[in-house]
Design a protein around this nucleic acid. Sequence first.
DNA 1: CGAACGACCTGTTCGC
DNA 2: TGCGAACAGGTCGTTC
Length: 259
Amino acid sequence: MPELPEVETLCRQLVKTITGQTLLDILVLDSKLPEITELTGRRVSRVERRGKKILLSFDDGQILAVHLRMTGRLLWQEEVKEIPQYTRLILTFTAGRVFFIDPRRFLTIQKERDSSSYHGGVDPLQNLTPEYLAARGRPRKGSVKSFLLDQSVIAGIGNIYACEILHHAGIDPARPACRITDAQWHRIALSTKEVLGRAVACRGTTVSDWRDFHGRKGSFQHELRVYRRAGLPCPRCGKIVARCLIAGRGTYFCPGCQV
DNA sequence: CGAACGACCTGTTCGC
DNA sequence: TGCGAACAGGTCGTTC
């Protein structure tokens, strides 16, 4: 679930909530997760996003990298209540507790040395240019959709937003990246910023169980044009939205206005 | 280097 | 109604 807009939403809420807070206790409830007891007593100095990862920096220089994968969530509680179902880790801070929730147990946390050792792709909200896309896309025979999903090219786009961006740009997701024209790369760069920016403003997309740090739904699901809308008319041209498989992922597109 | 595919997990939805 | 198959926001390792 969490793609860039959802992770960005969590990050902004984490910054406001736990920056400066001291980590009083750590409870690991899933044997797949590493022991991180040495963080006990440390103060959170910084929270930032790298693609879909969240980096928590502590006052002694240690960094915790969190990746929520498909179904991971973070939930903040100030009062002590019942532990939510599928909680895999609990961090207790001075002012409250952070629950790491994930039914599928894909969520990962790992200690990292320093935040500059990141080698992912560009951040689509910051440095994305048509020239960069064209240069990286030119040698690739695979579909433009799997190109947009490649985290070493652009960090943060997932399946929902890849579908929505390509619809916004009016481009067939199955088109090989090497056959995208400069004018189309231009549109893709603009649509990426447009769609992701709007989704961040909506605090993400709640298609099934996504919730933000305070348990609230996002609202971008009301603005989806093609994702999970197979059989419904395209809001732009009226043709029926289709679904196909690209690189093993369900892909939604409009055969009428995506060429 | 690039691309396709199975694996990792568990819950929900769909078709017969 | 019941049951198995298909599908779900994401990566990663293997193989070609």
